[in-house]
Structures are given as C-alpha cells and as structure tokens.
C-alpha cells in the first residue's frame, strides 16, 4: 500500500487530497478551496494570490482529516499542468517544498490524466472512449499503445468556457452553476424554439467560438433568451456527442466515460445515455464531486504513477502550461 498526498492548483481550485492504494475507502482526505472572481472570468494572478494565501491552511486541514502525518506519506504528487501559469506555480512551489523538507519523492501528474484516472477508479469503466469536458478542455481520447491518445478536441474554445462566457455576457451568471445546474441549462428549460445557429463538427473535432458569437448576436437582436439558451445547448452538446460517437466507432470501444466539470450536467448525461443505448455501449459518468477539479484525483494518479516508478527530481519539477494528455506515458496500464 502506498499513501500519497496530491496537490491540485491548475485553475481556480486549490485542492489537497490524501489517498491510500489497495484499500477501501481509498480517500483519506479531500480538502478544497475555490477562487470565484467577483466579476468577469478568471484572473490567473488573483486566483494565484488567493491560493497562496490559503494553501498552507488547506494542506493542514487535509493532514488533520486524514489522520496521518507527513512522515507517513510515501510520496507527494502535484499537477504540473496543463493550466494557468501563476496558479500552477502555487501548487508546484508547495509540493517541492514539502518533498524537499520531508525528503519525499515527488510525482509529476498531468491534470487531464488525473481526471481520467479518477473517473476510471470511481466508475469502474475499463477501456472506454474518454470524453473530457471542462472549462479549459474539450477532448475525446482513448487508451492505446501506452498513452491516452486524442481522437478529437475543440479547435477553439472549450465547452465549459462557451457556457460560462455566454452566461456572463447575457447576465445569467456568475455564479455559473446553481445547485448543481449550469445557468445555461436552467435557462434552456424554458426554451421552446430551436433557432438558427451554427452547428460545427469538423471530422472528429468541434469548434464553439462561432456558435458563441452567433448566439450573443441573437440575444442582442432581441431573440427570446431561453430559446437562445436551448439552441446553444443543443448545438454544443450534440456536437460533442457526435464526435464521441465517431471515436467510439473508430476505436471499436464498448464504453463511454464522461469526466470533467461539464460531466455534472444532468441534461448532457441524458443525451449521452441515449447515444450509448443507440450504439450498444455502456455509459459511465464520474460523480459530480469528482468531476470538478480536486486534490484526490492528483493523489490517486500520483499513487498509480509512483507505484509504476514515476518520480521527478525536485529541481526538474517545473510547470507545463500546455502539457498535453497524449504526451504522458501511462506505464501503470497495460497497452
């Protein structure tokens, strides 16, 4: 059994998780704080300052709730990317300091890989087509030849970003998620008509910025907001489902797993269920608590990686803002 403490700080969440491998429950601690900008989108520097001021407290809370001391931890894992530079630096600095001070091995974790691994762990999916949907990422991947290979992605903005920016520009948010429901999803419930908006699927890729612009233009021209919400949501979700279907067929898989913040959308889930039924596939959706960024997924992936011998010398543990999921070797899974 290995015990790993993991640190997440790629965007707005600073999270610390402690996990134990080969043990249930495997989660020993799960502490998080989330930066919510007073207005507008996320300001990396302000988010980083917010995190830096509170980080030590979150680490302490995690250790306290786990009931273990740092000396009992086998390794420190940290998300080195992809993400926002200033935020990543907070987590990396703390992880390096802990590893140096307590002489613990440091395990580099890719944030996207962590979303996938916690999804696999919690849903029991074995070899699925992976649909990773969040504020900063929209990608379709599958495990092949030792890596998570990307089969499709967004050519411009991410799905979560599309929803948030639309909400912001139309005054629906922030906050963007109320009682677990995205404000655009909620607004769409009152929608009746499907308006003419661009539906963009390019091969296995999607693109959303044209959709965003067109939807905002409709609102400005006085279209009923719920109708625009409904139309925007339909176009966006359907495009993702369509490229996921292409990947399912292209790779001959039988499972689909949805991870990342947008996975929490019940409406998207319903659509995916329909799609899975249509293609005789099984659908797995990561539980909402672990769909969003958290330290547990970093710790869990760290435990897998550490057990497979993956560590990084402290001086080489530098952040990688654009670290792609398909650049990471996955030695803990059989190819």
């Amino acid at each position: 059994m290995v015990i790993v403490l993991g640190i997440e700080s790629t965007a707005h969440t600073f999270g610390v998780g402690v996990v134990a491998s080969d043990r249930e429950p495997f989660i020993l601690a799960d502490e998080r704080i989330k930066y919510t900008p007073p207005t507008g989108g996320i300001h990396p520097r302000e988010a980083a300052r917010y995190m830096a001021e509170r980080a030590h407290e979150v680490v302490r809370r995690a250790l306290r709730s786990s009931g273990i001391t740092l000396s009992e931890v086998d390794a420190i894992a940290v998300a080195l990317g992809p993400g926002l530079g200033p935020c990543l630096r907070v987590g990396a600095t703390i992880a390096r300091a802990l590893a140096a001070y307590f002489s613990k091995p440091l395990v580099p974790v890719n944030h996207a890989v962590a979303h996938v691994e916690i999804g696999l762990k919690l849903t029991g999916a074995r070899d699925p087509v992976i649909v990773y949907l969040s504020g900063g990422n929209t990608l379709i991947a599958a495990f092949l030849g030792g890596r998570y290979r990307v089969f499709g992605e967004t050519l411009d903005i991410a799905l979560g970003n599309l929803l948030d920016v639309f909400a912001r520009e139309t005054g629906l948010g922030p906050p963007y998620v109320v009682k677990g429901v995205h404000v655009v999803d909620a607004c769409a419930e009152e929608g009746k008509e499907i308006l003419d908006l661009p539906y963009v699927v390019r091969g296995q890729d999607v693109a959303f910025s044209g959709l965003l612009t067109a939807a905002l233009k409709l609102v400005k021209r006085g279209a009923r907001l719920p109708d625009v919400c409904l139309s925007l949501r339909e176009m966006a979700y359907d495009a993702v489902i369509e490229v996921a279907t292409r990947c399912l067929l292209h790779t001959n898989r039988r499972e689909v797993m949805v991870v990342g913040g947008v996975a929490a959308s019940k409406y998207l889930r319903r659509k995916f269920e329909e799609m899975a039924k249509l293609y005789g596939a099984r659908l797995y959706v990561v539980p909402p608590e672990y769909a969003v960024d958290n330290g547990v997924m970093i710790a869990w992936t760290g435990a897998l990686a550490y057990s497979a011998g993956v560590t990084v010398p402290i001086e080489d543990a530098v952040i990688r803002q654009r670290w792609r999921i398909d650049e990471v070797d996955i030695p803990w899974r059989r190819a």
Binding site: G41, G136, E153, L155, I157, N161
Partner: peptide, 17 residues
C-alpha cells in the same frame, strides 16, 4: 497554426488583460 490554437484560449485571453 490550428494545432497551436484552441488550447488554453482562456489563459491567453486572461493574460492579455
């Protein structure tokens, strides 16, 4: 160019502010 785009648009946008 296409491959460099689309990743962390938010990050770049935020940095410009």
């Amino acid at each position: 160019e296409i491959r460099l785009r689309g990743r962390y648009v938010e990050e770049r946008r935020a940095r410009k502010r």
